[in-house]
Structure formats: structure tokens, C-alpha cells
Design a protein around this nucleic acid. Structure first.
Length: 339
DNA sequence: AAAACGTGGGT
DNA sequence: TACCCAAGTTT
């Protein structure tokens, strides 16, 4: 049994002072901070690396710099800006949340932790980040960076059943009352640049005197992972010189509410397509988090759009309007060859 | 409460 | 190449 370091003050001051000298001040969401902008950035950053998020965040904020500007956006508008970022439920939750904020908070972004927690897509860590970064209130967070830093600092057994509970208690204990803005950003920056996953740079770490794992080497976590399932999908992409025929995906398995080509998955004979004047077939693999997709896509060229007999939601989308729609990455990549 | 949910960075 | 894993939340 190892005892917890006595003072959390040494920890938080170490983090805060380090941040003042080494913090990543240039990150786009650290300029002109607002509750709204911290919210958008925190949602984008869930399970997604900073480097990946930056261009998406900039594009998003350029179009929707504040709550007022996003208040009349449709779900499709928001999904379009999310296209290629992944975990699309996050975009759908942003849509739902801003509708709630409009109706229940007179379109003023919530300032209270409990109010934030009620919004879809905001859990304890994201609510804590908004409270501490946007409003400078002392709330703990527990993202991947904080987990790594504090679990090493106190040498927590990560295979323990209720690590999460332990880690939250520890994060709460270590989170200071003062300088909460600097501390919260600092501990994330420290985790992202010094206390990194593979080979931490302990020599540069402000906590290397009291850290219980200082100068240790870390094995990669070998988790028992179950076999990833494979799935074959067959698409038919119809297009004319000026437009693509796309369908709105309706099932929850993946890419819900995004626009995709006609799904021929069961190889059902459909007679909704006329004979194209030209066609080709492409094949590609695409890995999702839980399924490996084997995609076969037939591409039908037509002289002009034609009427489709189906109940499925669909649209002939003008090629110069394609960026107004949310498309999954591999579909977007294919389509770009025919624009 | 384990599994679902996307995509790309880094080794 | 293959594999881990990333500013997590929801069901």
C-alpha cells in the first residue's frame, strides 16, 4: 500500500509554474476564450488529437463564432463541418445542445456545472474543462492526459477494478482552488508534451522530485482485445456531370445521419437505377473503431439525374454543394475523384 | 457495464 | 505492417 503524497499544493504549483513557461499558448481555442468556444473545442477534442482537431476547429469557429450564429443551423449544417473528423454523434449532440440552450437558457451559454452536465455529449470531464477554462472555477477534469500524469505520479494500479473512481478522487484532490485556468491547461499540456505515453521526458518534468514513477520506462499496455469484426458493404454511386445521388444513412451502427451512396448491402436486386452509359467498380478497406469495412462501390455515370422510386431519404446533390453535406471520410475521398 | 462510436498520428 | 491510442460519453 503506497500512501498518497501529502500535499497537493506542490503538485499543482509545479504544474502551474511549468505552464507559465511552457504552455501551448498558440492553440486556437486559447484565444478569446468563451464558454461556447471551450465547449466546441472540448467536444472536438474528445478521443481526438490536438493536431487533428485544429483545422476542423478553425473552420467551425469561422462559420459559427458564437451561440447566436449557430442557433439557426440545421443538423446537416453541423455534420457538414464535422465531415472527416469522426465520432459523428458529437456533432449531433452539439445540434441537440444548442437547441436546448435556445429553448431553456434564452440562448445564453450555461454557467453552472449541473446545467452543463444536462447537455448531451457533456460528461464530467468536459463540464469540468468548461468550468475551469471558460469560467475559472475549480473543477477537476480527467482526460487521457490527466489520467496518465496523475496515475504515474501516484503509481496507480491501472488494472484495478475501480481505477476510474480512484483517479477522479485523486484528480479532485490535486486540483487547486487558485490559478485553475493555468492548472487545467497546464496538466493537459504536461501530459501531451512531457509525460507522454511511450517514453516520458521525466528530466524536463516539474514533478520529477515527487513523482512515484519518475524515470521509469513504460511498457505498452497489452490489453486483451477481441477480434474486430469484418463487414462487406456494396454501394452504388450514381452521378451525372453536375450532381451525385446520395442517401441519408438511417441506422445507428455507424455514420448515422451522414450522406452515402445507395446501400446495396444485401445485394438485393434493385431496379431503381437505370442503365448507366458508363460504369466502373472500386474496392477499398476502411477501418472503423469496431468494424473493418470492406467496401465495394460501383460508380454509374449518367447523362443527367433521373427520378428515384424509393422511400429512402435521398437527394441529387450538386457537385459544388457537396461540402454542405456530412460525408464519411472514405466516401468523401471517392467522390472527390468525380467532382 | 462492456461495447459502441471514426479517423489519423506515431512508432 | 500493425498496433496503440487520442482533451470521453452514452447506453
Amino acid at each position: 500500500m503506497n500512501s498518497i503524497n501529502k500535499n497537493s499544493q506542490e503538485f499543482s504549483e509545479g504544474v502551474t509554474n511549468w505552464y507559465l513557461l511552457n504552455g501551448r499558448e498558440s492553440l486556437p481555442w486559447r484565444r478569446n476564450v468563451s464558454g461556447y468556444k471551450v465547449w466546441i473545442s472540448e467536444i472536438m477534442l474528445q478521443q481526438t488529437q490536438v493536431k487533428t482537431v485544429i483545422p476542423f476547429y478553425k473552420k467551425f469557429i469561422k462559420k459559427y463564432p458564437n451561440l447566436e450564429s449557430i442557433s439557426s443551423a440545421t443538423e446537416d449544417d453541423i455534420l457538414a463541418l464535422w465531415s472527416g473528423l469522426g465520432f459523428y454523434r458529437r456533432a449531433k449532440n452539439i445540434y441537440k445542445s444548442k437547441e436546448i440552450i435556445k429553448k431553456e437558457y434564452k440562448n445564453r451559454f450555461p454557467r453552472k456545472f449541473n446545467e452543463l452536465m444536462l447537455l448531451p455529449g457533456i460528461g464530467r470531464s468536459t463540464a469540468g474543462a468548461i468550468m475551469s477554462i471558460a469560467y475559472k472555477k475549480s473543477y477537476p477534469i480527467l482526460d487521457a492526459n490527466v489520467k496518465r500524469v496523475i496515475s504515474r505520479y501516484e503509481k496507480i494500479d491501472m488494472s484495478d477494478k475501480d481505477v476510474m473512481k480512484k483517479l477522479w478522487m485523486l484528480s479532485e484532490f490535486l486540483t487547486p482552488i487558485n490559478n485553475i485556468f493555468e492548472y487545467t491547461q497546464g496538466i493537459m499540456d504536461l501530459g501531451a508534451t512531457v509525460c507522454i505515453s511511450r517514453s516520458p521526458n521525466c528530466i524536463q518534468c516539474p514533478l520529477n522530485q515527487s513523482c512515484k514513477s519518475a524515470y521509469e520506462t513504460f511498457d505498452i499496455n497489452k490489453k486483451i482485445k477481441k477480434e474486430k469484426s469484418k463487414k462487406k458493404i456494396y454501394f452504388t454511386l450514381a452521378h451525372s456531370k453536375k450532381s451525385f445521388l446520395l442517401f441519408k444513412k438511417n441506422d445507428k451502427t455507424f455514420w448515422e445521419s451522414l450522406w452515402i451512396p445507395y446501400d446495396n448491402q444485401n445485394l438485393k436486386k434493385s431496379n431503381i437505377f437505370k442503365e448507366p452509359y458508363k460504369s466502373e467498380v472500386k474496392n477499398l478497406n476502411h477501418a472503423l473503431s469496431h468494424v473493418d469495412l470492406d467496401i465495394t462501390i460501383e460508380i454509374f455515370d449518367y447523362k443527367k439525374p433521373f427520378k428515384i422510386e424509393t422511400n429512402l431519404e435521398h437527394q441529387w446533390i450538386n457537385k459544388n454543394q457537396i461540402d454542405k453535406f456530412g460525408l464519411p471520410k472514405p466516401i468523401k475521398s471517392i467522390i472527390e475523384n468525380y467532382v
